[in-house]
Design a protein around this nucleic acid. Structure first.
Lengths: 161, 161
DNA sequence: TACCAGTATCTTGATGTCGAGACAACCCAG
DNA sequence: CTGGGTTGTCTCGACATCAAGATACTGGTA
């Protein structure tokens, strides 16, 4: 079974046969899979009326557990965006009624972003759809292969944490 | 060895123990690795005075082989951006003297984007730096593991092609 | 108590990308 | 050779994000 990256490596090999292209075999596939995955996510979410960036924020709140509250600062660290972006995102989510902004009782500078029940329903539905879509993409692999793949990826990811 | 995704899966497990989170173990790691990889690429390239988007375009031309020419249409398909974006990118690359725009002799609507010798030198240097940086990230894995990882990723990627 | 470095959030301006549309040239069917 | 659908490129307006700066509050120190 051949993929896009086999072509890519072949082309580089023709032009730069002097280089060891082994890293490309791994990282180029990771980048491309991430891109395809983004599109798959988008599709899964639009069926539930939310967008990827909305899911990222709502999911962070959902994972936090009751009462589904986090500060904007915590949210921007979880989702890896800047503070200006998070302000904008919370504004729009609040407009849609999926979250509400509350004053932090312990810090008057602070704000808490809380999931509404509509927000909770939206994120739960979207997450289930996402898992289903992702499970389809994994159909190629046996349980054993999937576990092995996850372990290998963990080895690469762990140094960044 | 534990990574960020172990925490993520644990948090979801607490809140949604009813769901099979196996897909998250794979795809969340792929997304995160892609993000870290983007940053590593940026670092490797800035040392060579070019940006990631510049590399994407220049590398496509470089891979094409002599005379290092491709149409904007071909370039936008290779790099997965829209035509408006590619026009903008070629403009800026031409301003920097890394590519030049030529009329397509076989199609008067068409244009050919050609790598200049400066562009070729820039992309070759940047690619070597990228491979070196990526090789570092792969240091965790043995040759056998790396090959296995590439094969598993190919299985996931192939259906998209 | 008064200060001040540090922290939390929001505001603002610049920028790169997208999507839709305009325009020119191509090419094939009639 | 003529018309019309298709293709290739560029233009333009909208928009999400980022980076830097503004503002307000906190918590420890003198």
């Amino acid at each position: 079974m051949r993929d896009e990256v086999d072509d890519l490596v072949e082309a580089w090999g023709r032009e730069r046969g002097d280089l060891d292209l082994a890293p490309v075999e791994v990282f180029s596939r990771i980048s491309r899979l991430a891109r395809h995955l983004d599109l798959a996510r988008r599709d899964a979410f639009t069926a539930h009326g939310i967008e990827s960036w909305e899911f990222d924020v709502l999911a962070a709140l959902r994972r936090a557990g009751k009462p589904y509250e986090l500060s904007p600062g915590r949210l921007l660290r979880e989702t890896l965006v800047t503070s200006g972006t998070m302000t904008n995102r919370v504004d729009r989510l609040a407009d849609r009624g999926l979250v509400q902004r509350l004053p932090d009782p312990h810090d008057r500078r602070g704000v808490l972003v809380r999931l509404t029940s509509e927000g909770k329903a939206a994120v739960d539905g979207a997450f289930e759809a996402l898992l289903a879509a992702e499970a389809d993409l994994l159909a190629e692999l046996s349980d054993k292969e999937r576990t092995r793949l996850a372990a290998l990826l963990r080895s690469l990811l762990a140094p960044f944490s």
